[in-house]
């Protein structure tokens, strides 16, 4: 019984981790006043480049680094269009996702069906063998711990550092930040690329740890769920974590329900994470004052220093 429970909790954590990465990255991007809807595309490109690098080098650290760079490069592309060329952020984000879906399928065509060794799980003598707590707390792969560190780090950065304050100021009022002499565009480039790197990392987690393989469109809407999570969290990093684990729970529960052979068709159960996203969005968004108070005021707005 305890073993089953432990197995479920372990998978909840692994299902939540890619969402934690992607949503935390997007949160920083949005805090700087930029809405990047290309998370899904950046995740896919990260997933496939990480996978390719893992096959080429056999070194998971390099694979993860490559995935992050790939995500950041995609995000840089988005930055060139929306920040330097002042293109519409919604349209550009959609374009980034569509481009990412195509590009990742193109790169990944030779890797479909190639097996790979999953990222190693932590194994501390005694501690990892504890019942329940062992596998859940001390037996995950290192990316899981990294995701928690990232959340804490981003929360600290935004709340307690001067750079974080400047980043938030850029998102709240780019004109004021500009008047104070800060480079709005430069700050936003960094924030967008951080978001991209995190999305790439989320992708790498999918293709290296969660399901160690590459399949076309393997993110299956997780990038979009991450976007919804940022709203759910009302732009607060800690709540991203809560939301992601909630969604991980829903995903895993429906998988286990399918396995247990409930009389409900598997497709109906697979709908649950998407329906849950809608329900959560509705519950959070109905209080429009709260959204207005928490959302960065300049989100999605074009900045041109002379207009």
């Amino acid at each position: 019984m305890i073993e089953t429970l432990a197995a479920i909790l372990v998978t909840v954590v692994t299902a939540a981790t890619p969402l934690v990465f992607a949503a935390t990255g997007e949160l920083v991007t949005e805090k700087a006043g930029v809405l990047n809807l290309g998370v899904e595309g950046m995740m896919l490109v990260g997933a496939v480049s990480g996978f390719a690098a893992a096959i080429a080098t056999g070194n998971p650290a390099i694979a993860i680094l490559v995935a992050m760079i790939a995500g950041a490069v995609m995000a840089f592309l988005f930055g060139v269009l929306t920040l330097s060329l002042m293109a519409n952020q919604v349209a550009t984000g959609l374009a980034l996702t569509m481009f990412g879906v195509g590009l990742s399928a193109l790169i990944g065509q030779d890797y479909v069906g190639t097996p790979i060794k999953a990222l190693a799980k932590l194994d501390i003598p005694v501690l990892s063998d504890l019942p329940l707590i062992g596998p859940v707390v001390f037996g995950q792969d290192f990316l899981v711990y990294l995701s928690l560190v990232m959340v804490a780090g981003v929360a600290w950065f935004l709340k307690s550092t001067r750079a974080g304050l400047i980043l938030r100021a850029t998102g709240e009022s780019h004109d004021a930040a500009h008047a104070l002499g800060y480079s709005v565009i430069g700050i936003r480039y960094l924030a967008v690329m951080f978001g991209g790197a995190m999305s790439g990392l989320a992708g790498a987690y999918l293709s290296l740890a969660y399901t160690p393989m590459w399949a076309e469109n393997m993110s299956a809407g997780r990038g979009w769920i991450a976007l919804a999570l940022v709203v759910f969290a009302t732009w607060k990093p800690g709540r991203v974590l809560v939301g992601a684990y909630l969604f991980g729970g829903v995903t895993i529960l429906q998988l286990h329900a399918q396995g247990a052979g409930f009389a409900v068709p598997s497709q109906a159960l697979s709908m649950l994470p998407y329906l849950a996203t809608i329900v959560v969005l509705v519950v959070i968004s109905r209080d429009s004052t709260r959204i207005r108070l928490n959302a960065p005021a300049c989100i999605g707005k074009v900045f041109h220093p002379e207009t």
Binding site: L85, N88, F99, G102, L106
Partner: peptide
Amino acid sequence: PQAVTGVFQGLLLFFLLA
């Protein structure tokens, strides 16, 4: 691979927005 189509379509929208 047929994915070339998706890349083309994505590129076209990118260039248009740029």
